[in-house]
Each structure stands twice: as structure tokens, then as C-alpha cells.
Design a protein around this nucleic acid. Structure first.
Lengths: 336, 336
DNA sequence: TTGTAAGCGTTATCAC
DNA sequence: GTGATAACGCTTACAA
């Protein structure tokens, strides 16, 4: 069915080697040959088999992007940027979803079967340090960790300063005169780095303003979806009449929280100000528009893909950690 | 570095054939052999090279999902379902974005290089009939078209009844007593099927209620994003004081339109009712929550992946077209 | 039940 | 500058 190098060679009456040279743009091919081969290629509608090429070269041109769920806006926006960046560098991107499954993340990290299928992996995990701790850098395919800010010299990171981001968001609320501030997004049992760091930033900001973090005002959120934000905010409002602000660890939590405030008959930001983290597109057109801390997904994607490409090129480049910039974006949900 | 079948065979003192048998779960292997081989596999940390396997078998286990933009909620929600379904059937999913680029869609449809990399392709296009018209089913890898409702016996479709969906949305507005109804989402130049069909459904519903579609009330939208909805609605409101409802061809357009209504100092649904199509998650927590026509993405994904798997199994199964169900979901944005 | 060997479509190492 | 030919790691006739 599909034509092979051999078919082209036969038709052009040249050796398979010459055809390969033409296809891969080798310089030293005579004009005559090149033309003859090109014609045969067109006649037969030949295109090279990437699988065979890969078996020979070891390079697939495929990257793996691992995210919890692709339909979470932050991750789909990240994926978009990653795919575009990868495309620019000649890579295609496979998406794996871990669905908040710790075990699945673990598996993906060490599944050797993937070594040969992918040139590298971009990992945006809930992952904890312990998931990586018993992993040698040499055990995995070229790997870039996204988002998590874990101090570990062995792997490349493109991280976010979660402590500072949470601190900035909380400080913004404080500066707007709010003092009974709740936080939504701590994780119940797991020791994921991101929520811990955001809790830390929240606490720090309060203390800087001479406030003591009140345990009752810190709500867990099993996931970071709208429904989780809604449920947590509903409980908070019911139990804390004086509440005047909510800091959510993600924009999606914030969207749910805002809806909950209104369903409780209160207003955002007049009664309760709400701020998130991520700066997903949804928050720019929502009502009220969502104040947030913008994480620079294009920067994260570009840096990560470039870094990964470099590591694929040379596996021995020392691991480094880049902290992506973030920026407070005040919008209506805190302008009260 | 990575161990091969040969290495395992050497270590277990058996032939490569026996190792292969064990790895691929062949039945007739003696217990003794199986154990010896298994031990060697563990010792060496062997896992089979999927690329080599593919070169031999012709099956990659990879599917290609082509969408305009993965960060558009409808497509990320679809992708999530597709990836999950594919996973259940042992496939992994590669994502390609066409970025509304007609030429790129064309390319992806006929790029022969992909024939060997993917077992099949799920295509959620802006695609027009003419993009497919000069394409033989045998030219492409196994292909399922998503969303477009094009009558063409050559390709498998999992389609939406766009005419009926638009009709239902419009009728809902009419039944709520609205009569000066605008529509946002027609496409300027291109002859994409989806907008044409939705325009048709809009027109039909109006006529059934004895109303004449007014050209001035039908707005183009270059893309289907929030910003496009915002811009179109703003223009509509400015030029049509009596407007009492807007039917948007997508939920994202509707989110932008709603914001625009409020920025104009009017209320949804009191002054202007708004309805969309898609039923993205965002619309369930927005304020007001968004009335919409729900497209059953899990159904679409499941049907499409199953169908594709069947076609990969047997390329000669006749093409068929499935119409995915849709359902009107009345929410706050039309309850005035 | 297990071993031997051919071949999937490339690239790359030799010669010439 | 071009032609044979040996891998890449696997599956699968065909033998034994």
C-alpha cells in the first residue's frame, strides 16, 4: 500500500541510499539524481515512515505532557501553549491525565515502556517530593517538572513561587481593608507541595499585618474545581458571619466561591472580596471579573519546552530550576 | 542502556522467541521457562520497545485528535472524554491544534507521514465539505469526523443535529415571550457547516412563530470566544434598543454576551435573555447560570473512539453517521 | 514447547 | 557521489 524507500529506489533506478539522502536533505547529491528521485517520490506519493526512522535514530519527536485533568482551564491553557511551543521545535505532544491519582503519577514517572516512545516528558503533577525521592534522574526519560517548587537538584523545574503568590494575593485583600479573611484550598491528607506553600504564603501575609491565622477560616478542598470552591465557601459563610474576604488557591475555586456568596444573598466584593490564583480566561469576563495572581503560562510553556529540548539534545546538562514570574491582577472581585 | 529482548534471552539462557512469548502472554510456555524469563526481566528492568513492536505489527496504539484550540472549554472537555475512552481501549491520544487554519486542517487530513504514526484520527474541525470532497476514504488513515453534520457516505461521523439544536434554543427564547431575538455566531466568509446549520435552525424557529429573521439582528463572530461574543453583543445592543434576547452559537460567545449586557447597564435575563450551545462547565456556576443546549460530549467521545477502534480493526466496515443527542438546559439566563 | 531466522523501513558504515 | 549492507528491537513463520 504505502510506498517505501525501496519502492522509490526501484522506480528511480537508484539505490535506496540515494533516496534516503534526498529525503533527508543530504547535500552531496547530484542535481540529476535529486530530480529523478524527487519525481519518483511524487509519482508514488511516498512519505517516510516515522516509526522506522525512530527505530533507527532513537528519536521519536514525541513529548508527553502529564496533567491531572485536561479540562481544567489552567491545564488546557498550559497545554495549548506547550503544544504550540513544541510544534515550533518540531515535537508533537501526547497528553496523559492522572486524574488526581497518586499511583498513576508514580507509574507514568517510571514506566519504562514510555522511554522509547517519547523523547521527553513534561510533568505537571500533584506530585509530592516523595514520589520523586526514590527516582534517579537516570531512571526516567528527560523530564521537566512544572509548577511544583521542590528543592531538589536532580530534576529540571519550571516552578512558581507559590509562597510569594499566595502572599501577594492575601496582602492585596489586607490592603483593601479586609481583615476577616478565609482561605480555600488546603489539601486534607496529602502533602502536596503547592497547597502547603500557598497556605504558608497566606499565613505569612496575615502575620505581617499582625493577624493570627484562624483555623476555622482555612478550608480544605479535595480538588480545585468550581464545585469544591462552592461547597467550601458555603460552609465558611454559614459559620463565619463576619467574613469579609476569601483567598482561593485557584481561580476555579474562586469561581465557585463567588457563586456561593451570591447564593447566600451577599455581594462580591461589597460584602466579601474574592481572589484566586492562575488568571484563567474565564475570570476576565465573569461577573464580577476575578482578581487573581497571573501565572505566566506562555513563559512556563516556552521555558519548559526549550529546556526539555536542550536536555534531550544533551542528557548531561545539569538540572536547574527556573521560577516563572507572577503578577497580581486586581479586578472587580476585590475592588470594593 | 535499556535492555532488549536479546539481553533478557541471554540472561535467562533461552531463545529470544521464548522471551517474546512470555512478554506477550503467549499461552504455551512451560512454567519453568516462564519463571526463568520473568526473573531475568525483573533483574534487567526490561520493558518492550513499542517502536520496534510497531514497526513489526503496524499498530502504534496512537490516535490523533485534531481540534481548533485545546483551551476552548468545549474542546478540552471533549478531549478529556476522548483521552479517557481511548485509554480504556488501550490507545494514547496526541493532540493537534489547527488554530482555525483551514490550510492546516487540510494538511493534517492528507499528510501521509502520519499514516504510520497513528492508527486513526478523530477530527473535530471547522472543516468544510470541500476540504473532504477531493479526499478518498482510502487516502486517509481511519478517520472519524466529530461535530460536523455533513451528508457524505464516505466517512464516519459522530455529528450533532445543529439545525435542531439551534431551533430548540431559539424556540425556548420564543416560548419565554421574547420576540426581538438576535443571533451571534454566523461566520463572515467561510462556509463552515456548523454556523450555517445553526443559522438555519434559528431562522426556522422564528418562522414557525410567524417571525421574520431580521438581518440586522444576526451578527458574525470570527471565532467563538468570549471576546467575540462581547463585541458582537455590544454592537447589537447599541443598534437595537428593543432587543430582548440573544441566541449565541456557543456558550463561550454567550459568556461574553452576558458580560456585555451588564456593561451596557442592562440585566440578564430581565432585559435580555441569553442562551448558548455546548453546556460547558463554566456556565453552571456563572452568574447568571447559562441556559444552553447540552451536547453530550461523553457520548460523542465514547461513540467516536469505539467506532474508530472498530474501523482500525477492520478498515472495510461501511461508514456510518451517528447523531449525538442534545438537550435543552434552561438555567437562569433565560428565566425572566 | 522452544529455537532459528526473516523482515518491518529506516539510517549509517563501509567500500568503490 | 553512489551502491551494498548491517543494524535498530521486535513478531512470527517455519523447523525441530
Amino acid at each position: 500500500m504505502a510506498a517505501t524507500l525501496r519502492d522509490v529506489a526501484d522506480r528511480a533506478q537508484v539505490s535506496i541510499r540515494t533516496v534516503s539522502n534526498v529525503v533527508s536533505g543530504y547535500e552531496h547529491v547530484s542535481e540529476k539524481m535529486r530530480e529523478r528521485v524527487t519525481r519518483a517520490i511524487d509519482d508514488l506519493g511516498y512519505s517516510p515512515n516515522p516509526i522506522a526512522r525512530t527505530l533507527r535514530t532513537g528519536k521519536t519527536g514525541l513529548l508527553s505532557l502529564v496533567v491531572p485533568e485536561i479540562d481544567v482551564p489552567f491545564f488546557s491553557e498550559l497545554a495549548r501553549a506547550v503544544i504550540d511551543e513544541a510544534d515550533a521545535l518540531g515535537f508533537q505532544v501526547m497528553i496523559d491525565q492522572t486524574g488526581h491519582d497518586h499511583e498513576r503519577e508514580r507509574q507514568l514517572l517510571r514506566s519504562g515502556a514510555r522511554r522509547n516512545l517519547f523523547d521527553g516528558m513534561l510533568f505537571a503533577p500533584l506530585a509530592t517530593q516523595d514520589e520523586l525521592s526514590d527516582l534517579e534522574a537516570s531512571d526516567t526519560l528527560p523530564l521537566i517538572l512544572l509548577g511544583e517548587h521542590v528543592f531538589d537538584g536532580r530534576f529540571d523545574h519550571v516552578a512558581i513561587d507559590n509562597v510569594q503568590a499566595a502572599h501577594d494575593a492575601t496582602t492585596h485583600l489586607l490592603e483593601r481593608g479586609r481583615s476577616r479573611i478565609a482561605a480555600i484550598g488546603a489539601q486534607p491528607k496529602e502533602t502536596y507541595a503547592t497547597p502547603l506553600q500557598r497556605s504558608e504564603g497566606f499565613r505569612l501575609a496575615l502575620e505581617e499585618h499582625g493577624l493570627e491565622p484562624v483555623t476555622a477560616l482555612q478550608m480544605d478542598a479535595p480538588h480545585y474545581g468550581r464545585a469544591d470552591g462552592y461547597a467550601a465557601a458555603t460552609a465558611l459563610i454559614e459559620q463565619n458571619p463576619g467574613l469579609d474576604a476569601i483567598f482561593c488557591y485557584s481561580d476555579l475555586l474562586a469561581m465557585g466561591a463567588i457563586r456561593s456568596v451570591f447564593d447566600a444573598g451577599l455581594r462580591v466584593p461589597d460584602d466579601i472580596a474574592v481572589i484566586g490564583i492562575d488568571d484563567i480566561q474565564e475570570g476576565r469576563f465573569s461577573r464580577p471579573s476575578l482578581s487573581t495572581v497571573s501565572l505566566d503560562t506562555p513563559y512556563i510553556a516556552r521555558t519548559a519546552v526549550e529546556r526539555l529540548a536542550a536536555r534531550i539534545e544533551d542528557p548531561d546538562v545539569p538540572a536547574n530550576e527556573v521560577i516563572a514570574p507572577h503578577e497580581l491582577i486586581p479586578r472587580e472581585s476585590t475592588q470594593g
